[in-house]
Simulated scan of single mutants.
Amino acid sequence: MRIGELATRAGVSVRALRYYEEQGLLVSERSSGGQRHYPESAVERVWLIRQLYAAGLASRSIVDLMPCVENGQVTPELLGRLSAERSRIEDRIGELVKARDKLDSVITLAAKAAHEGKPCPR
């Protein structure tokens, strides 16, 4: 499929796909006219790349992870890096939960003040 179709099907911009190629995350074949062509499997690969980016992984980490995803190849070093990334994500989740809980407290106070016709507490 051509780059525009992949972008549409994967829900990303053409620019993002070009960036993924620059980073070594995605590979295309070129036609004689220089147009990029991707296999059907590229859609799932782009979804995975987006999920890993959303989890906070850097391009370099994702590149290193791909052989493991594609064919099960893993080294002890890669396993250690993946475990460290998972720990980092767990820490981030904890921070987000604390922020959500604090926001819930502020919302409760603001709603109570609004119900009583008072200004929001500071």
Rank of each mutant, 00 (worst) to 15 (best):
R2G: 09
I3V: 10
G4A: 13
E5D: 15
L6F: 02
A7W: 06
A7S: 03
A7G: 02
T8K: 15
R9M: 10
R9H: 06
A10H: 06
A10I: 00
G11R: 07
G11T: 01
V12Y: 12
V12R: 12
S13H: 12
A16R: 02
L17I: 04
R18W: 11
Y20M: 02
E21V: 01
E21F: 02
Q23V: 00
Q23I: 00
G24A: 02
G24K: 01
L25G: 05
L26K: 06
V27M: 12
V27F: 05
E29I: 01
S31H: 06
G33H: 09
G34P: 04
P39I: 01
P39G: 09
P39L: 07
P39W: 05
P39N: 06
E40F: 07
E40W: 06
E40C: 03
E40H: 14
S41C: 04
S41M: 03
A42R: 09
A42W: 06
V43E: 13
V43L: 14
V43M: 10
R45I: 00
R45T: 05
R45Y: 00
W47K: 13
L48K: 01
I49F: 11
R50C: 09
R50E: 08
Q51R: 15
L52E: 03
A54C: 08
A54Y: 02
A55P: 03
L57S: 09
S59F: 14
S59C: 08
S59N: 13
R60I: 04
R60Y: 00
R60W: 01
S61I: 02
I62D: 02
V63R: 15
V63S: 05
L65V: 06
M66A: 05
C68P: 03
C68V: 04
V69I: 15
E70L: 08
N71A: 10
N71F: 06
G72W: 03
Q73C: 03
Q73S: 12
Q73T: 05
T75E: 05
P76I: 07
E77Y: 04
L78T: 05
L78I: 03
L78Y: 07
L79Y: 11
R81H: 12
S83T: 12
A84E: 14
E85L: 11
E85K: 05
E85G: 03
R86F: 04
S87V: 00
S87H: 09
R88L: 08
R88S: 09
R92Q: 14
I93R: 14
I93E: 09
E95Y: 10
E95G: 10
E95S: 13
E95M: 11
L96E: 08
V97H: 14
K98A: 15
A99M: 14
D101P: 03
L103N: 04
D104A: 12
D104G: 04
S105R: 14
V106R: 07
V106T: 10
T108H: 13
L109M: 13
A110T: 12
A111I: 03
A111T: 14
A113V: 09
A114F: 08
A114D: 14
A114S: 13
H115V: 02
E116F: 04
P119L: 11
P119Y: 11
C120T: 09
P121Q: 14
R122V: 11
R122I: 08
